[in-house]
Each structure stands twice: as C-alpha cells, then as structure tokens.
C-alpha cells in the first residue's frame, strides 16, 4: 500500500531505503529521478544509455543505503554521485567523449514546460554561480563533470600541466561552494 513519505527529509527516506522499503526508493526516484536523468542525458547524449545510468545509480542507492552517512553528505549529493559515477563509467566505455565534440555553451535558462518551479530555480541558481567562475575554472569543472574526462586527459586536451588542472578544479569547486553558500544565506535572511 502506498504511504505518503512527502513530509520526510531526504536523509530519512534514505534510512527507510536501507531497510529495503521500496516505497521509499520510489519516493527518492520521484524527488531526484528527473535531475538524475537530465544529468545522465547531458553526459551520454543517448536516451537509452542515460536510462541505464539512472537505473544502475538508483540500484546502487538501493544496495548501499545502509552505508550512507548523513554527517558526511546530503542525501541528494550522495544519490547524484552514484548516478554520476555510472554515467562516467558508461561515457568512458562508450568512448562517446571522442565521438562528440563537447560544446560548452551555457544551457538556456528556460527549461521544459512541465518542469517544477523548484528545479527551474535551482538550475538558475547553479548556472548563475558557474557564470561567476573564471573561464578556465568553469571549463575544467564542466569538462570533468559533464564530459567524463579524467584530470590527465584534461591536461593533455587543454595543453596545461596536470598541476594547473588540479588547482583549477580545486579552486573552482571551493569558489562554487562559496557562491552557492552565499546565495543560500541571502535567501534565508529574508
């Protein structure tokens, strides 16, 4: 029988998944399946491969929920990390990175019509944060995260020393976190 889990935090729902509760897994899918699919599709550019990545990612959530440590990560981060990892495996295996040239044009801010307001706001928020990064940092983050390139491949592709790539990724992530955190503080102070 379906239960209403809407009032539970993401972390509480993961705890239910750890007890093999499939309605809780369905709830997590309803919350993050769409973002996960969008991410996988952006990386793999193939709907059926993207579905595979999402399915494998959510099955990893199902199997590993008991190992989730709420003190160490938000549940949403953890779930999307598992999906991202599958998508990276697939993108590397399929060699899709080399077949497609990866365009780095920013995504348009207007999304699909049926998308929730929350997702649209979240996308605008992260896109705006990305725009505030210096180009080399943003490029390193985008090629690594969406392109599935390893740091060594990036160094070669961009003609930069490995140390430079490492420091762009590190500084880029730290800065992104600061910008997103500032935005959050502003939102909460209202």
């Amino acid at each position: 029988m379906a239960r209403d889990l809407a009032h539970l935090s993401d972390e509480a729902v993961v705890a239910l998944v750890a007890r093999s509760d499939e309605t809780a897994l369905a709830e997590l899918y309803d919350r993050f399946g769409r973002v996960a699919y969008g991410l996988a599709l952006r990386m793999l550019r193939d709907p059926s491969l993207a579905e595979d990545a999402v399915q494998e990612g959510f099955l990893a959530v199902w199997r590993n929920a008991a190992r989730f440590v709420p003190e160490r990560a938000k549940a949403s981060t953890w779930i999307l990390t598992l999906v991202h990892r599958r998508a990276v495996d697939l993108v590397r295996r399929e060699e899709r990175r080399r077949a497609d040239s990866l365009e780095l044009a920013p995504e348009p801010a207007t999304g699909p019509a049926d998308e929730s307001a929350w997702l649209r706001l979240e996308r605008e928020r992260v896109q705006n944060a990305l725009k505030q990064l210096p180009d080399p940092q943003r490029e390193a983050l985008e090629l690594a995260y969406y392109g599935g390139f390893t740091q060594s491949e990036l160094a070669e592709r961009l003609g930069q020393p490995l140390g430079t790539i490492k420091s762009r990724m590190f500084t880029g992530l730290v800065r992104l976190r600061e910008i997103l955190g500032e935005a959050e503080e502003v939102a909460w102070s209202h």
């Binding site: 399946g33 997702l119 969406y146």
Partner: peptide, 24 residues
C-alpha cells in the same frame, strides 16, 4: 565532504527533461 557538495550541485545546472515514464 565540502567539495562533493559543490560537485553535486553541478547536476542541477543542466536541463531536466522528463525521463521515460516506465523507467520508475
């Protein structure tokens, strides 16, 4: 823990078309 939070946020920057209904 700090950096993966920021990396995870990147997932939200892309467009999210609806996945096929039977995937769930």
């Amino acid at each position: 823990a700090r950096l993966s939070g920021a990396a995870g946020a990147l997932a939200f920057a892309v467009e999210s078309p609806a996945p096929p209904p039977d995937l769930r």
